[in-house]
């Protein structure tokens, strides 16, 4: 399953996820990719170990209040044990964390057209970054756009190609300000992606730009 993934998350993103420094939408991207990619999962857990070392070697530990241990021991009786880890490997197009945000798999998405046959669905996340699903019909192109911030695009179904490479299920394209690209879906299948950006998109052609305020992109 994971061996076919060629384009991975950057170390900076994996460390940011581990450190708890990413906005929610980016956490969603990372969690979705990690569900499909054990290479990145192992790297992220390595960053967790780094966090553990920092906690362990924290030189200015702050003393707990007197009676803290007794208070905590008393609390042990109240709560309930969390059941053993549950396997959440999803059968559908969307990995588990994404299904949590969509409220189901592909058939639960409420798409809105954004032109040229391309459709999108904005996912509810708080903070400075935004997440949306993109539906690109087979053979179609996403309107040519640059972006002010970092844009992460992960393929969930089908594949697309742009000036950089070809991206298939599980692959993530990490695009910064400098990249102006035109993703084109493979002709064989409609392409569905999760796209996350930490700044609004700016489309180059005038119609999408006019529509931008209404589309919340």
């Amino acid at each position: 399953m994971t061996e076919t993934i060629k384009h991975h998350l950057t170390d900076a993103l994996l460390m940011g996820y581990s450190a708890g420094a990413l906005p929610e939408a980016m956490n969603l991207m990372v969690a979705t990719h990690l569900s499909l990619c054990d290479t990145c999962r192992a790297q992220m857990e390595s960053f967790d170990i780094l966090g553990g070392c920092l906690l362990e070697d924290n030189t200015d530990a702050v003393a707990m209040d007197a009676g803290a241990l007794d208070a905590t021991l008393a609390m042990l009786e109240d709560g309930e044990d969390v059941p053993a880890r549950q396997i959440r490997a999803s059968e559908g197009v969307f990995p588990g964390p994404l299904q949590d945000y969509v409220g189901g798999d592909l058939d639960s998405v409420r798409w809105k057209p954004i032109g040229m046959g391309v459709r999108q669905a904005i996912l509810p996340t708080s903070g400075t970054a935004s997440a949306r699903l993109l539906y690109i019909p087979a053979g179609a192109a996403v309107p040519d756009h640059g972006h002010q911030g970092i844009e992460l695009t992960m393929v969930l179904q089908g594949a697309f190609s742009d000036e950089v490479d070809r991206f298939a299920r599980g692959d993530v394209e990490v695009a910064d300000e400098d990249l102006e690209h035109t993703p084109v879906a493979d002709i064989s299948e409609d392409c569905i992606c999760l796209a996350v950006t930490d700044a609004p998109l700016r489309f180059k052609s005038w119609i999408p730009r006019l529509a931008q305020p209404f589309l919340r992109i």
Binding site: E24, A31, S35, P95, P97
Partner: peptide, 13 residues
């Protein structure tokens, strides 16, 4: 005050 999406769990037992 945010959700933190977690990857699918791997089995443990």
């Amino acid at each position: 005050k945010e959700r933190r999406p977690e990857p699918e769990e791997l089995p443990w037992g």
